[in-house]
Design a protein around this nucleic acid. Structure first.
Lengths: 188, 188
DNA sequence: GTCTATACCACGATAGAC
DNA sequence: GTCTATCGTGGTATAGAC
């Protein structure tokens, strides 16, 4: 389910916006800039979306969707596995959402915090649901006293990779293993 | 060396800008907004700085300065300590830079990536120097095979705390201990 | 050192032709 | 579904009085 290189106009607008928002933040992206990369005029965006914020909100929602789908696949693949493998599988799945399904998830995790309040409040329930899955998993794995705190630092380590990980040169399986080892502990 | 609540105009401009940039990102902050919070008109900013980018650059430089000072204090305090204490001291110092000396370091680590290229290239040597200190320390501690990768995920965990840590309710010593434990490993 | 006034441009958004 | 044209606003920045 590759979400990159959409063929319909609406999809191309989202693709372009996600990439631009990832690079410049929401406030740093102009509709004229989006339109230019899509190959239309800025006014034409309003045939597909009601406002700039609506475009950004759709990008964020899709970014969370991508994470959820990656989670579901990981959960299905690792139900019967041992505890460490379950963690490793979900870490790999989150990294997959960040790097292997278009810039949506990466745009969401980097730009959400500084996005307009209207956009943030609209998507916060979706975010919370995904975060709750993680907290529940970590609680289930029984690694530490504070699974909530553990999830936050784990998210910090995983999500920060969008700032420095190079998909051309790096290996996502390797990165997932490194992060899993750090958060599992070296002698389980 | 509290850097908050400066009394001179230049210092107040930087204080206000750092706080606003932390919240909204560079592109999300207008000079009129900065001026209003300082209590002057936007045009008066040009008596102190040559452009918006110059203000932001000064904020970032100060953010890195704060980190460097925190590092120096930690290094002086922990030279004779055991390896784990050295790591813990520097983790605590980095958190101190993020939360206990104004919003400068927090603004820098969150807004640098989406800042104008002109600003980024101007401060990148300072950033690199601080990062090199960390890589050297981690290499020295001989914890893992890849100290470079380790530093990046550690930075991710530490810096992400500006998105969720509440200084009113949380305890920075405790947070430092949690992160140190994660990155040291549970059974050294 | 701060002000008023203003230039100039880019922003998001709308109207209406095709 | 995309266009041209345009509106009103707000952005950075400058000139010059006080």
């Amino acid at each position: 389910m590759a979400v990159i290189d959409a063929v319909d106009a609406r999809g191309r607008i989202l693709d372009v916006t996600a990439a631009l928002v990832l690079e410049h933040g929401v406030a740093g992206v102009a509709q004229r800039q989006i339109a230019e990369q899509v190959g239309i005029k800025a006014a034409s965006l309003y045939h597909h979306f009601g406002s700039k914020n609506e475009i950004v909100e759709a990008v964020f929602r899709r970014g969370i969707d991508v994470m959820e789908h990656a989670w579901d696949e990981a959960a299905a693949a690792a139900t019967a596995a041992d505890r460490r493998t379950r963690l490793a599988t979900h870490v790999r799945a989150h990294l997959s959402a960040l790097f292997e399904n278009g810039p949506y998830t990466a745009a969401h995790v980097t730009a959400f915090r500084t996005a307009p309040a209207e956009v943030r409040t609209a998507v916060v329930p979706m975010r919370d649901a995904y975060e709750a899955r993680w907290t529940h998993l970590l609680s289930d794995l029984n690694l530490v006293d504070q699974p909530g705190l553990h999830r936050l630092t784990l998210f910090g380590a995983m999500n920060s990779s969008v700032e420095w990980f190079d998909t051309e040169r790096g290996n996502l399986d390797e990165l997932a293993e490194v992060i899993t080892t750090q958060f599992w502990g070296r002698t389980p």
